[in-house]
């Protein structure tokens, strides 16, 4: 990895402004709905929040309002899948995972049915509603299930591509996105292949592996360190399961240290998935930017990210730590 890093390369990913990932989901759902009549959508009284009104308006006969009954929604989705439909079951991440874990386990994953669970408002950035709604355990819950694919896109554009990709894929999928407007910076040229991570920034000193809203912050950290002569590889690990083992092993081998970044509990999330791969293949120092075994609280998303140490500065700090441990 001796290549010279230029400003042009890093500038490839500049923000086109802030946009919500859930908007990308709703728009892509409509597009896929137009192409594939088997796609049906279910929502538990959060149609507007999930941006599913577009689909509902154009395909009222393929939209199923389930009311505030998430367990029923997941099992109904499984039933629809037994008739050949491709159901998209949607709610806030807290209600679409932990609340209905047993339904997902038995009726979806064990039964290997083609159900897509698409969840918004994940993590601290749900904001003011507070800890009851800020699920930080969903990635862990979903990646613990055999047969489940777990996808966490990083911006509006990638959420669109991810939504299309999971609806092409046959089998259970959990797609996680969020509430706030966040930088939209990825491009269609990046493509989207489930299980294949994307290197957004080349580097040889350390690698940051991030998912969701932390990908942009990782990119910011890499750009800051460029000026200090430290080159940071940034990997957008949009699929947590199946994890891209090859990219992780290569990063460990090429850069000798890894920092993970996610809006999720440190236990059971992306960090542990990466650590698992490294521990079994190529042990290197790993630092984790994540919520450290605590619940969130009410507040503005940015204030919460600051308090719970999920900012660009926190990534920088963990990079320094990783670099120290490496040497």
């Amino acid at each position: 990895m001796g290549e010279k890093i230029t400003i042009e390369q890093t500038a490839k990913y500049s923000s086109r402004g802030n946009k919500a990932t859930r908007t990308g989901f709703g728009e892509a759902l409509l597009e896929v709905g137009r192409q594939n009549p088997s796609v049906v959508a279910l929502c538990a009284d959060l149609t507007g929040s999930l941006n599913m009104n577009l689909f509902r308006k154009e395909f009222p006969e393929r939209f199923i309002q389930t009311g505030i009954a998430e367990a029923n929604m997941i099992s109904m989705s499984a039933g629809l899948a037994t008739t050949g439909k491709i159901p998209v079951a949607s709610s806030f991440a807290v209600f679409a995972t932990g609340r209905v874990f047993d339904q997902i386990r038995q009726s979806v994953c064990y039964s290997n049915l083609n159900v897509k669970i698409c969840a918004s408002h994940a993590g601290l950035t749900l904001g003011e509603d507070g800890a009851t709604h800020q699920i930080l355990e969903d990635i862990g819950l979903m990646r613990s299930l055999p047969r489940m694919t777990v996808v966490v896109p990083c911006d509006y554009s990638e959420t669109k591509r991810a939504t299309k990709a999971i609806l092409e894929h046959v089998g259970p999928v959990y797609l996680r996105f969020g509430r706030p407007n966040v930088p939209d910076f990825t491009s269609d040229e990046d493509g989207f292949e489930i299980g294949k991570s994307i290197e957004l920034h080349p580097g040889k000193d350390v690698t940051v592996i991030a998912c969701g809203i932390m990908v942009w912050k990782a990119l910011e950290a890499a750009r800051i360190l460029e000026k200090e002569g430290v080159t940071v590889r940034v990997i957008n690990m949009h699929t947590i399961k199946p994890i891209d083992t090859l990219a992780i092993v290569r990063a460990a081998n090429d850069t000798g240290a890894i920092v993970t970044a996610e809006e999720h509990q440190m236990y059971t999330g992306l960090g542990e998935a990466v650590a698992n791969v490294c521990a079994r293949n190529i042990p290197v120092p790993i630092e984790m930017v994540a919520v450290e075994d605590t619940f969130g609280e009410s507040g503005k998303p940015d204030d919460l990210l600051k308090k719970y140490k999920l900012t660009t500065e926190d990534i920088l700090e963990k990079i320094y730590l990783a670099l120290r441990r490496k040497s």
């Binding site: 099992s75 499984a78 039933g79 629809l80």
Partner: peptide, 11 residues
């Protein structure tokens, strides 16, 4: 869970 599944299938 079965009745929910059956509701989905009936739909």
């Amino acid at each position: 869970q079965g009745l929910s599944v059956a509701v989905g299938a009936a739909l």
